[in-house]
């Protein structure tokens, strides 16, 4: 079955590692819908969250191929039922005259905040599920989007467990 899935990858925090991970996706003909990367609580490691679209075959291969990379310390396929995820977006909207009020209302409705503005535009920050961000974009589209920038999903397993202590999760398990 084809669908979106998310993997969390803990990697050594040194140069070139992101290239190895994304290169593996390219070489194996897997797509990347979004990718977010940053240092973890332990500066020796970075965490990469990758969202892809694919079937069960691809899900299993992604995990197993990633696990073979020397710089990859841990790979977990996140179960959507048991994980929390969030994405950030900066969006610059045309805001002239009466439209301004509508835009402020929309940002408010989505719990966003205004990061920058002048007489003819507003830049807002929206945080939430990827779905929520998609829906904001759709709502804002008629108002005139000047540009937008999404962070890509970041996600974690629910509960107290640290990713390093989680057993490898195969799609069928």
């Amino acid at each position: 079955m084809i669908g979106k899935f998310t993997v969390s990858v803990i990697v050594s925090n040194h140069f070139g590692v992101l290239n190895r991970v994304s290169g593996l996706y390219a070489k194996r003909n897997y797509n990347i819908d979004s990718l977010a990367v940053g240092e973890t609580e332990n500066p020796a490691y970075s965490r990469i969250t990758i969202v892809s679209t694919g079937d069960d075959y691809m899900k299993e291969q992604v995990v197993r191929q990633l696990e073979k990379l020397h710089d990859v310390k841990k790979v977990v396929l996140l179960d959507p039922e048991n994980s929390v995820g969030v994405e950030h977006m900066l969006i610059k909207l045309k805001a002239e005259g009466e439209a301004k009020a509508d835009i402020s209302q929309l940002i408010n409705d989505y719990g966003g905040s205004v990061m920058d503005f002048s007489s003819d535009f507003i830049t807002a920050e929206i945080t939430g599920s990827s779905k929520k961000i998609d829906s904001f974009i759709e709502a804002a589209r008629p108002l005139g989007i000047l540009e937008l920038c999404r962070s890509g999903l970041i996600a974690m397993i629910q509960g107290t467990k640290n990713i390093m202590s989680v057993a490898n999760l195969d799609p069928e398990e």
């Binding site: 070139g16 290239n19 190895r20 290169g23 593996l24 070489k27 990379l69 020397h70 710089d71």
Partner: peptide, 14 residues
């Protein structure tokens, strides 16, 4: 050469 050989090595280093 690390970039060039990345897809065809088990691992590489500079």
């Amino acid at each position: 050469i690390v970039g060039i050989t990345q897809p065809i090595v088990k691992h590489n280093y500079i």
